[in-house]
Amino acid sequence: MNIFRLAGDLTHLISILVLLLKIYATKSCSGISLKTQELYALVFLARYLDLFTDFVSVYNTVMKLVFIGSSLAIVWCMRMHRIVKRSYNRELDTFRHYFLVAGSFVLALVVHEKFTLQEIFWAFSIYLEAVAILPQLVLLQRSGNVDNLTGQYVFFLGAYRAFYILNWIYRYFTEQRFGRWISWISGLVQTALYADFFYYYFMSWKNNAKLQLPA
C-alpha cells in the first residue's frame, strides 16, 4: 500500500459517501444517473469475484464489501425507494448503457491477460469502469444546473482513478512492477473522460459560480 493508492481508495469512498449523503439528506436522486450506478454495481460484482476465494487483507475485503454493498443499495434506492425514485430524471437518463456493457465484454473476450473466467471478468470490469461515467456526464449536460453534492460526487469519482495512475507510476519505480497495462490504458481513458468536467468544475469553483456544463 502506498500513499497514492490510499488516497485513491479514500477519494473513491468519499465519492460514495457524498452520493449517499445527497440521496438520504435530500431524499432525492435528481441529477443522478441510475444507469451509471447500475454500471458501477456491475463493475464491482465482476471485479471482486475473488472476494471469498482470495484473502488479501482485512482492508481489501472490507472495502470490496463496502463498494459492492453501497452500489447495490444506491441502485435499489433509485429503483424501489418510494420517495427517492420519484425524483429520478428518467426522461433525461437515456444513454444506451447496454452497449457499454456489451462492448466492454466483447473487448474483454479479445484483450485479457489470461483466458480464465476470473481474468476475463476482471478485464471486463476495468473496461466497463472506464466508460461507466458516460451516462452520468450526459445527464449532467442535459439537466443544466448541477447541485453541489452531485458535482462533488462526480469530482471525487474522477479524482480517485487519477490517484491510482500515480500509484501505478510509484509502483513502477519502487517495486519494478509494470503492473497491468490493461489498468494503465483504461485508467488513462477513464480519467481523460472527466477532463472537460474537471475544467468546468474548476472554473465554477474559481468564479464561485454555479457548475454549468455546456449542453
Partner: peptide, 10 residues
C-alpha cells in the same frame, strides 16, 4: 507473474 502483481488493488 504479472497476473497477481496488482491483485491487492481494489
Amino acid at each position: 507473474s504479472s497476473i497477481n502483481d496488482l491483485k491487492d488493488e481494489l
